[in-house]
Design a protein around this nucleic acid. Structure first.
Lengths: 339, 339
DNA sequence: TCGTCATGAGATATCGCTTTCAAGAAGTGA
DNA sequence: TCACTTCTTGAAAGCGATATCTCATGACGA
């Protein structure tokens, strides 16, 4: 099975040099925009480059410069999780879009459980210049240690930001959750309950404390709290438990859209309606909520922007530019029909 | 701004050779599993490799072998599309999982419109050994030409498979749609309508013709066809038009879940219920349908498997192994509550 | 007019690894 | 025991680019 259709050999620096009648060194200087090349020579070289349609060989360049021009994006979530959560696609998109204007390449790595040793080896083996680690909701930052030897930027605040020296971009979960609860209160709901996320994940913790804080600010309180695991079924279960308590409820703040959707079903099972009997507000603004009936009022999390910022940070880190340790993104309340 | 925390220099082939008391050539042979190395020498070398925790330098290897060990995945859809469609995440996942067991790297490229020239340059610039091109639904294969110079595998059948020489993996849209319609008929529905996809996209065409074929097979017919663009709103519009025709309808086959969900709202607007008045079946089985109320009966499209197969094909192609030109994946009817 | 300097451009030494090429060791048949 | 394979292993030549060092050259102050 022959191939070799690959039209001749790719042009090399050498060929460009010959074509332009200069040395390889000079061509290299032009390619890398070195200032120490006279304008006219640069013009001639550039012409040769265009004519030969020359593209520098990444491997060769990498070998000597000790830079790979590649950035890894590792998604340590379980396979099923990645598949169901629109969040990842959005972050990847943001990263890819930003990187498109640089000459870094994005290497996707989805961790299938036990392979983490292999991943570490890959990351530390000099295959990439930096790594982006994302894990929606979970504060899993088992990669923190890597940041001592490789630039690493996390998506989401580390659960235990030990040294306080981890770079990450996060959304303002607390503020976002506050606007959600404020909205519920502003629309006249007073008997509020919440379906919280796992209390060992930063977003779970922050969104719950915002719930309590906002209530308190308005002279209200509530012990109507049930915890879910951010999945739709867990939201439905939590809602059932809430309803089963027998206390009146006219508003629900779910820590994410998926659980809010789960709550919808439990509310309907109970013969109640959204938003007439119970108003519900979610968090994330993914397609679970936007296509639900009724469309979910929720707090939009700028996932794409998050990816973009992460990419910006890692590139800055790699190129030794000053970079803020943490970037916090604002959320936005999206009012639809559920509250 | 000093860095250099990168603990000493990475061990090189040279160092391993010294440690094992053999030549670089021999170490290289061991690393690449060459059969022409005596067992005992191999053992010694392997020990040295383990001890030094040696990882071959990709750039160096690439430079001489003319292989990058990298595969590009290009997603030519518009930014918004990628964000909303769970399909991509699933395919990427499948690809990444397969590649994890090989030593190929996955380079993600999301095309932001006009950058296609840059992408071509990248692909043809010898940066990757092969490319995977995905575009859900659309038969956009503007990358077909590339396959003459670089191994390329498409996700989804090309709209016009001119030379018939494009490698691709696709799902059996026709058969899948047939089972959907069969299900509707089997459950006693006889006044069927369909919300078709764009007729310039293979899945749109196949799913519609399957609708007619199945009807005919059962001695039925229907001209209740409205076309949407695979988005939820277009599904709602199509449904409204269908309802506006004033003819009785008791079953709907939507060409994808997103449009099926759109249909839900139009049906509700009309004061009708799913599935009592109108049964609806979708196609894709993404989270739009699974979390809807009522949960959507749909045709599952094996997206992750699709990614896996694409990866398998491209690796086979790169390594000159015989590979089938086209792989067609079976779908599966997932019966839930909407029909 | 001569020496001192910036400056632009060429030579050249790597970078880490694969891969002939050749040679020494070992095994074979006559 | 000699000539000839068959195996193993080492030596060395690159792969394509970057970067250090060196060398002209022309400008400029004395």
């Amino acid at each position: 099975m022959a191939e070799k259709l690959r039209s001749g050999a790719m042009p090399t620096l050498e060929m460009v040099a010959a074509q332009a009648g200069v040395s390889r060194a000079t061509v290299s200087r032009v390619v890398n925009g070195s200032p120490k090349v006279s304008a006219d020579v640069a013009t001639v070289v550039q012409a040769a480059i265009d004519e030969l349609n020359y593209v520098p060989n990444r491997a060769a360049r990498s070998l000597v410069s000790r830079k790979t021009q590649a950035i890894a994006m590792v998604v340590p979530e379980s396979a099923a999780k990645v598949f169901d959560d629109p969040f990842f696609a959005a972050v990847v998109q943001g990263v890819a879009l930003y990187l498109e204007d640089t000459d870094y390449t994005l290497n996707m790595i989805i961790e299938s459980g036990a392979a983490s040793h292999k991943t570490r080896r890959y990351l530390l083996g000099g295959n990439v210049d930096g790594a982006l680690v994302v894990s929606h909701h979970t504060g899993d930052h088992s990669y923190s240690e890597l940041s001592r030897t490789l630039p690493v930027v996390f998506g989401g605040r580390p659960l235990s930001d030990v040294g306080g020296d981890n770079y990450y971009v996060d959304v303002d979960n607390f503020a976002g959750a506050c606007t959600a609860v404020e909205h519920l209160i502003a629309s006249g709901r007073t008997k509020l309950a919440t379906i919280a996320g796992p209390q060992d994940m930063p977003p779970g913790v922050d969104r719950l404390s915002a719930f309590h804080a906002t209530l308190e600010k308005h002279g209200l309180t509530s012990d109507l709290v049930e915890v879910g695991d951010f999945s739709p079924p867990s939201g439905a279960d939590a809602m059932r438990r809430l309803l089963a308590r027998g206390e009146p409820i006219d508003g629900i703040f779910a820590a994410n859209d998926q659980m809010a959707i789960g709550a919808y079903s439990a509310i309907r099972e109970a013969g109640l309606s959204v938003p007439d009997d119970i108003a519900v507000v979610g968090f994330d603004d993914d397609n679970y909520g936007s296509t639900a009936t009724p469309p979910l009022t929720t707090v939009r999390q700028p996932s794409v922007e998050m990816g973009r910022r992460m990419a910006e940070m890692i590139v800055g880190l790699i190129e030794n530019r000053p970079v803020d340790t943490v970037t916090t993104l604002d959320t936005e309340l999206v009012i639809r029909d559920s509250a």
